[in-house]
């Protein structure tokens, strides 16, 4: 078994513009995903939108710089994640392809293998 991070990216404006019915269907799709994945889901959260982000860096002298906004300023931002445990990439692709963000035109899901230090 191996761990994978599913990073859900999308256009926040479109997420915010969802109607009540769309939001209900969206939540139901996530619930269905969680039900099918079962114990393979090790964790996952929906994140507050990118404008609420705070980014920390340091300047050339090593002093802390705190800035408003996400690390990468892009139209499509990280909106949530799941941490999954699965046998192989094909199993993850099969599960993750059911996520509603894969089906919507403005969003997508990036699958990243987690480094196994064991």
């Amino acid at each position: 078994m191996a761990k994978y991070m599913l990073l859900i990216y999308g256009d926040a404006e479109q997420w915010e513009a969802m109607s009540a019915e769309q939001a209900t269907a969206h939540s139901a799709a996530h619930a269905a995903f969680a039900a099918e994945a079962g114990e393979r889901v090790l964790g996952g959260e929906e994140l507050e939108l990118a404008p609420t982000a705070t980014t920390l860096r340091s300047d050339a002298a090593g002093a802390l710089i705190t800035t408003d906004g996400p690390f990468l300023e892009t139209k499509e931002a990280l909106g949530g994640f799941y941490l999954l445990e699965a046998r192989d990439l094909d199993e993850v692709i099969k599960l993750a392809s059911q996520l509603p963000e894969v089906r919507a035109g403005h969003s997508g899901v990036e699958i990243r293998p987690v480094v196994d230090h064991g």
Binding site: R87, D88, L89, D90, K94, P113
Partner: peptide, 12 residues
């Protein structure tokens, strides 16, 4: 990424 050495499942 653990791309499996296998023939894909019927749905894929």
């Amino acid at each position: 990424a653990r791309i499996p050495y296998q023939v894909p499942a019927p749905e894929q």
